[in-house]
């Protein structure tokens, strides 16, 4: 069973490391392999759809086609909560009245994590959906989760609710959600990082903090590694070289800077390797003006085969 055969992959990592790009690339790679993939983001507007050139995907709660075999869905927590209430109460008018009531507003403010819970609950619900023939409706659900701090809060929520809501429907569903998240056969946690000091430290810290939750990451994705454009052997030559022209000088400075950044990245990769034996997938830095479908495809071409190999 490969990593792409899971029902849910939850992608998290420090802010700014490229979580969304990696989540999109995983979804694309799964779609390429013939799996039906759903890319889920937790936000009030869909950003991911933009990567696939979809401008009409901004509406939360609505599944949009992004690519053959790939659809996208933005989960907006407040909306998911209302949807959940409708489902639970079986009466839309009552659910709407409740959701609109001030008292309910206070309750959601006071009941920490309720939004996170319904967000995960929605994902759980997606895994349960069946087609008319009884097949699972979604092959792989890739979740572009919030950055680690809030991502961890999200993963912790079902267990917290088992504790605070000790009976009733929410309790039962929290249990089902907690089981889904912790079940390594169904769910995989993908930690994204960059080979820089702060993201690496946060990644190592996250690994520690997952453990008491009974959770474990399946893979580390190290994003944005500089390719070896200038080799270490060129270092000495470049140290003293001063071309006469401005362009030549600029080129030498850029090459030196490249070497320095590669050194930093090598150091951080070493630190990561020394601290954890988790499998690592390394993605290249994209020298592009911004992320687009070509960029996502470039990442997917690396991620797909690597994830296919991972258990």
């Amino acid at each position: 069973m490969s990593l792409l055969d899971r029902q849910v992959l939850i992608v998290t990592g420090k802010g700014g490391v490229g979580k969304t790009a990696v989540a999109a690339a995983i979804g694309l790679a799964a779609a390429w392999s013939g799996r039906r993939a759903l890319l889920v983001e937790i936000a009030s507007e869909a950003h991911v759809a933009g990567l696939f050139g979809e401008s009409g995907g901004a509406e939360p709660g609505k599944e949009v086609a992004l690519h053959p075999n790939l659809t996208g869905l933005a989960i907006e927590p407040q909306q998911a909560l209302e949807e959940y209430l409708t489902l639970a109460l079986r009466v839309r008018a009552l659910a709407e009245r409740l959701a609109d009531s001030r008292a309910f507003g206070y309750l959601t403010a006071a009941a920490p994590g309720l939004r996170e819970l319904v967000t995960l609950g929605k994902i759980w619900h997606l895994t349960e959906q069946r087609t008319r023939d009884g097949e699972r409706r979604h092959g792989l659900i890739v979740v572009d989760a919030p950055a680690t701090g809030h991502g961890l809060a999200l993963l912790r929520t079902p267990r917290a609710f088992l504790e605070i809501a000790r009976a009733g429907r929410v309790h039962e569903e929290s249990r089902a959600i907690a089981e889904l998240v912790a079940d390594q056969a169904r769910t995989g946690i993908v930690l994204v990082t960059r080979a820089e000091e702060m993201p690496v430290s946060e990644t190592l810290d996250t690994l520690e903090r997952l453990r008491p939750l009974g959770l474990e990451a399946r893979v580390l994705v190290v994003n944005a590694l500089y390719p070896e454009l200038v080799t270490g052997a060129d270092r000495e030559t470049l140290r003293t070289l001063v071309p006469a022209g401005e362009t030549g000088q600029a080129a030498v400075r850029a090459a030196r800077s490249h070497l320095a950044r590669r050194d930093d990245q090598a150091g951080e990769l070493g630190r990561l390797a020394a601290a954890t034996s988790l499998p690592r997938v390394e993605l290249p830095f994209l020298f592009r003006a911004g992320l687009d479908l070509d960029g996502v495809s470039e990442l997917a071409a690396v991620l797909g085969p690597a994830f296919e190999e991972l258990p």
């Binding site: 639970a88 009245r97 409740l98 008292a103 009941a111 809501a165 429907r169």
Partner: peptide
């Protein structure tokens, strides 16, 4: 209105949770 809301919530969330709250 708030009574209806409360009862509805209780069905979903459970009594312990509400009493804690």
């Amino acid at each position: 209105a708030s009574l209806v809301g409360w009862k509805a919530l209780e069905r979903v969330i459970g009594v312990t949770f509400l009493s804690d709250l």
